[in-house]
Structures are given as structure tokens and as C-alpha cells.
Amino acid sequence: MFDTVNRDVLILFPKQPLFDWVNYIFPDDKLKCPKPMAHDAGDVFLIPEFTHPDDAIEYLKENFIEFFEQELFDWTTDENLWPEKLTWELFETWFHYSIQSVVMDILDEEIEKKDF
């Protein structure tokens, strides 16, 4: 059997408004928004393990700016091009999110971490 990991997973998928912003700041290279849950269209984050889904959502609401900034940084490091205010409402407008509480490690190898 597989081992479970003492983490939950947050998966963020971009919505059309994020791609509208990307296409606005990079007008010469228009991108289309992928379908939600499309292969390799989202980013996956290991977050603390919670005993109740509401606690995980509360964690996300308290920490959404960190995830928002990471997503924006993936598109441009020029923070002057970022939206002026990063709000929870804007986060929900720009991203589909899913938090999963069961994380299994199917390999016997150590997990490697890299700083980007």
C-alpha cells in the first residue's frame, strides 16, 4: 500500500481573467485559457495538513496573497505590471482552486526540493 503524506494539496487553475491580464501585458503573444483541470494547466502546492476542509479553506483565505504573488511572478517578475490590489475576490475571479486532503507518496525515493 502507499504511504500518506502529512500535507494537504492546493491546486490552482487559471481562469480567463488571468489570461486577459497576461494578454494585456504581453499583447504580442496572445494565450488562450486552458480548460480547468487540463493536463499540466494548474500548479500544485503542498500545504499544511488540516483535519477539516473548512480549516484548509480558512488557511487559503489567510494566505492567498502568497499564492497569488507566486502565480503572478510565474508570468512576470515586474511587480509594477501586477494588479494594484490583490484581494480575495480577485483571487477567486482569477483562479479555480481545489484542496485535497489525501496525499499519497507512491515512490520509495526521497523527495527533492529546489529553490527557484
Rank of each mutant, 00 (worst) to 15 (best):
D115G: 13
D43N: 11
I111H: 15
W75R: 05
R7K: 13
E84H: 06
L86C: 09
M104H: 14
P34H: 04
D74E: 01
V5N: 07
P34L: 05
P83Y: 09
F91E: 02
T4V: 07
A38Y: 02
P34Q: 02
S98R: 13
L18T: 09
E110K: 15
F13S: 11
E62A: 11
Y59D: 08
I99F: 09
F73P: 00
W21Q: 02
D55M: 04
I11Q: 06
I65Y: 00
L81P: 04
F95Q: 04
E71G: 00
F26Y: 13
I106E: 15
D20F: 02
K32D: 13
K114V: 14
L81F: 05
F2C: 09
L31R: 09
D3A: 10
V22L: 04
Y59G: 08
D8H: 13
T51A: 04
T87D: 08
E112T: 15
M104P: 10
P48D: 01
W21H: 04
V9S: 07
K15V: 07
T93C: 13
E109W: 12
I47A: 01
D8F: 08
W21M: 03
Y24D: 13
W75Y: 07
T76F: 00
N80I: 00
I65F: 00
R7E: 13
D43W: 10
T4H: 06
V22I: 11
D3I: 06
D43S: 12
E110A: 15
I99T: 07
D78V: 06
I65T: 02
Y59K: 04
F19S: 05
M104A: 15
P53R: 02
L46A: 07
E112R: 14
F95Y: 11
P34E: 04
L46I: 03
I99L: 10
G42R: 01
I57P: 00
C33Y: 03
I65P: 00
D78Q: 08
I111L: 15
H52G: 01
T87F: 09
W82Y: 09
T87R: 10
L18Q: 10
K85N: 14
K15N: 09
F91C: 02
W94S: 06
I57F: 02
D105L: 10
E110S: 15
W88T: 08
K113H: 14
G42Q: 01
F64N: 01
W82F: 08
Y24H: 13
E109Y: 13
I11T: 12
A56I: 00
K85M: 14
D43R: 12
F13V: 05
P53A: 01
D20W: 03
L107F: 13
P36Y: 07
F50L: 01
L60G: 01
I106K: 15
F67K: 02
H52K: 08
S101P: 11
F2W: 07
E49W: 10
D43M: 12
A38L: 01
